[in-house]
Write a protein that binds this DNA or RNA. Structure first.
Lengths: 347, 347
DNA sequence: CTGTTAGCGCATTCAC
DNA sequence: GTGAATGCGCTAACAG
């Protein structure tokens, strides 16, 4: 193992001082073209490696992090993201991050706008944003940009913004895999169906749309009989939902697998179980507590998990890299890989 | 976020000096019962948290790590483990680990014994052992124990040893999932078959045995027609292997899925492809380069990946925790979770 | 724009 | 057994 070159070594080699090297390494302050050139030449030759420990020791500053995401109950999707954020804050505990969380109702644009405004008012050093309302996010980011407050997006891409990094998953492929697993889980020759949960507000999630496209892409390649839009289930009215689902299945006895494009597969599983329809397979998204329970009991055959925890973790990591080391990322958009979970390989 | 208590703070609170607190925290040197009691009382109250960075800065020592694992070619199973070791060494670069690797032929006990002897002679500060020969490992560990050199096991459990930690995967469940995926990948009602690769030496891998048990457990629960031990394929003789495989499939036209209990599914896929048998599905273990190629091309339907890279990474992490912080683990045996990989969710 | 320097928290001497 | 002193490599602040 070659001996580690230190900032001081490089300074001597380049004929400048340690301060100058530091300025160049982290793009802070002004440096003359001459010094920059000399240092970069040495850097290219010897290949400096940042020592994260000594660096963190000097950096004793405490940063304030603002987090604005939809509110959640334990075990839900955003809860997993929050878990990831939490474990990152724990792992990078000695960095010193004070964070303030602004939750909002993901189906209420007012509530979202309000949370974003409060985040902005708190003047954090950086922000994590999980947005379901594009326009609100754009306004917020516009302001953050002006204040030069770095931010990352979680789970959503927002056009016309300048995040340090965006962490999402490939929803199209998620939908494709959902179809594939549903097809594989059901007997050859049987039919499958896709339902949607609708809220009184009636907005459609963009993620769900993309997943549905992926689902269709799988179906269109093969001879699987699939009822897309088999029924709209009003999420607030369990009775009506159940009537629609069970009614459909009675009319279509060859349907042996059902799915929804979000994490609410556990509701389908509940209703199927209540009606004794144990031969109908369900595949769903996300390792939420309810879904895991059904997976263990057999009411759900498989889950597609787009790693919300990893997203949350990586988002914090990204912010730390930006704040402490002013490190810029190669590709500002990162896809988190998809996990396929059966009962047997539950983590 | 509460302000971090420092060693010095604790020292003041307990009425001793920082040095004494350090001695107690890391079980080094002698401390009077009185001091110990006072410090532990304070510790219990305020909950000290070790600052990994400052600690690493002071600890400028370089450790020597001995690694004894089977030799491998690029893209093979042990190569992935080594990748994991490598990335951990890279990530914890500033800790300063010099490592020496002792490779041996996993089918030659002499070679293994020799590698283990050389590892011991090198007197490392710690060791990573991936063993395929139990008795050799036991002798080595007995000696390491005497010298108080900590070690961890990779991929194998060795009875009557005292590793800091052991990282393996659940082979039984791996085999179970192999059967499940093969069953799901093939049309309902078709048959499946399991082949084995044999070497002239003729020894059977313990991992493969456990996987086969898992495989049988899946089969025995359902009405899948399965030919276990459909054929022994001599690994050194490609022609003969091909004759056996193809011959079997001709005699059993309902067999639509085949598998082996190790990472050599790519060889089956090669032979099937060469014979135009594109409707026969293959499921295999491990994300090796050859397997990934077939997965992408469709010659392999799915891979079960028992995360060798994670094993390697975690093993190094464990050693670092032991050497630097004398941290003892809760459960000395860790199962690395199983990943299911289709073409679509390749990392 | 650049060099110098204090000090981050901890582990490790070395006197006592 | 114990406490005080030293230095790890880096960053930030300040003096030039």
């Amino acid at each position: 193992m070659a001996k580690q070159v230190k900032i001081k070594d490089i300074a001597i080699m380049a004929g400048v001082s340690a301060g100058t090297v530091d300025r160049i390494l982290h793009n802070r302050g002004k440096v003359s073209a001459k010094s920059r050139e000399a240092v970069e030449k040495v850097l290219a030759e010897v290949g400096y490696r940042h020592n994260i420990h000594t660096s963190a020791v000097s950096l004793k500053k405490t940063y304030r992090l603002g987090i604005a995401i939809p509110s959640f109950a334990a075990g839900e999707y955003w809860s997993s993201i929050y878990d990831g954020i939490d474990s990152a804050l724990d792992e990078y505990h000695d960095v010193g991050m004070d964070c303030e969380t602004f939750l909002y109702d993901q189906f209420d644009t007012e509530s979202c706008r309000d949370a974003f405004a409060r985040l902005l008012d708190s003047h954090p050093d950086a922000a994590l944003i999980g947005s379901t309302f594009t326009i609100n996010a754009q306004i917020l980011c516009n302001n953050l940009d002006k204040l030069e407050i770095p931010y990352v997006f979680l789970d959503t891409i927002v056009p016309d913004t300048n995040p340090v990094e965006t962490f999402t998953t490939d929803q199209h492929t998620g939908g494709y895999l959902l179809a594939k697993l549903l097809d594989m889980s059901t007997p050859t020759g049987s039919e499958i169906a896709v339902f949607s949960f609708v809220r009184s507000g009636g907005d459609v999630s963009k993620n769900a749309e993309q997943r549905k496209e992926g689902f269709k892409a799988y179906i269109s390649d093969r001879r699987v009989v699939c009822h897309i839009d088999a029924g709209m289930l009003p999420i607030a009215d369990k009775q009506a939902s159940e009537r629609i689902l069970i009614g459909f299945l009675q009319e279509h006895p060859d349907v042996k697998g059902v799915a929804v494009m979000n994490s609410r597969g556990h509701i389908l599983a509940d209703m199927l179980k209540a009606n004794g329809l144990n031969d109908i397979k369900v595949v769903s998204f996300d390792l939420t507590a309810d879904n895991v329970r059904h997976l263990k009991e057999g009411g759900i055959s498989a889950l597609i998990c787009q790693n919300p925890k990893t997203q949350g973790f990586n988002a914090v990591q990204s912010i730390i890299n930006k704040l402490l080391y002013n490190k810029n990322v190669d590709r500002p958009h990162k896809m988190v890989p998809i996990d396929i979970i059966f009962k047997e390989n539950l983590p």
